[in-house]
């Protein structure tokens, strides 16, 4: 006969089966916690400055002569949440392709960082921005105006990528 010898009855010893001593231990644990210093902070007043490894909202790198992105759409392809929409167009610059439209739907984005990982131009990187507040669905779709961030502000992340990617 197939007898299971790992039932609750077999696993627990007498005191455990009584519950009470274990309950007392548990209560003791929480009681001790009550006198410790809180770990949380008073958010809007005390802010947290993330380090380079933090994956906040994805942004596009803006250099002096415009965006790095060449609208290859690889980020859009790899994005597991289908958050990115890119529309390419032609320019007369040496890199003949650029995004006329680049939109990230922040309601879809799951901050996985795949877009950053796949980008052949290091044009999309995860920023430190974690404060995303929208009052309607349309606002949550960020266009190039909100996505392009000067490269100077992204140094921490770029340095992190250089070292660990």
């Amino acid at each position: 006969m197939n007898v299971n010898h790992n039932t609750e009855k077999d696993r627990l010893n007498f005191w455990e089966k009584l519950y009470l001593p274990e309950i007392a231990r548990g209560l003791g644990l929480t009681l001790r916690q009550m006198f410790k210093k809180p770990m949380t902070r008073q958010y809007p007043e005390e802010r947290w400055e993330p380090t380079g490894s933090y994956r906040g909202r994805p942004v596009l790198v803006l250099e002096e002569d415009g965006e790095r992105c060449v609208a290859c759409s690889l980020c859009s392809r790899v994005c597991p949440a289908l958050a990115i929409e890119v529309q390419a167009a032609e320019t007369t610059k040496e890199k003949e392709r650029y995004p006329v439209k680049f939109e990230i739907n922040m309601l879809r984005c799951i901050y996985c960082g795949f877009c950053e990982e796949v980008c052949p131009e290091e044009a999309i990187v995860m920023s430190k921005d974690y404060e995303l507040i929208f009052t309607n669905q349309e606002d949550a779709i960020l266009g190039k105006d909100k996505l392009l961030i000067p490269i100077a502000q992204l140094q921490d992340r770029l340095e992190f990528l250089r070292r660990f990617k």
């Binding site: 916690q33 009550m34 006198f35 809180p38």
Partner: peptide, 10 residues
């Protein structure tokens, strides 16, 4: 409040 204390929150 008590739950917060038990969780090390405020």
């Amino acid at each position: 409040k008590i739950s917060a204390w038990a969780h090390n929150r405020i």
